[in-house]
């Protein structure tokens, strides 16, 4: 019994993470239509019901920037240097395409479920 629970829990966790991964990217791109630095972005997402670990969000920002979807700049705010991110031109295009895709999947899922 214990064995099947462990496997089931593990499987659920893997599937849940898989389901969230793409959604998080879309949420981050959406939120970065306005400029944010890491911490305020995380807060904004949490306030809207999408909690995300620091160890997931901060590296994700780096990856999206490397892919050219975000731009960033170091700037001082409240006597502390912070790295501010926002959507790049490529990022805006990508976001629009992903949003269309999301809406299409969502509509299909509603019909299926």
């Amino acid at each position: 019994m214990g064995y099947s629970m462990t496997v089931a829990e593990n499987m659920f966790e893997n599937l849940r993470l898989e389901l969230r991964r793409g959604c998080l990217t879309l949420a981050v791109l959406a939120q970065l239509r306005q400029e944010h630095y890491g911490y305020t972005l995380r807060k904004a997402l949490t306030e809207r019901g999408l909690a995300i670990d620091e160890s997931t969000l901060y590296p994700l920002l780096r990856r999206l920037e490397t892919q050219g979807l975000l731009t960033s700049e170091w700037r001082e705010e409240e006597k502390r240097n912070k790295r501010f991110y926002r959507l790049s031109a490529d990022g805006e295009t990508m976001f629009t395409q992903l949003l269309d895709e999301w809406n299409a999947i969502n509509a299909s899922l509603y019909k299926i479920l």
Binding site: Y37, G38, T40, E54, R62, R80, K82
Partner: peptide
């Protein structure tokens, strides 16, 4: 670079 950014975020938190 990564540690500086992480520091800024965690200190704000």
């Amino acid at each position: 670079d990564i540690v500086a950014e992480l520091r800024a975020n965690l200190e704000a938190q």
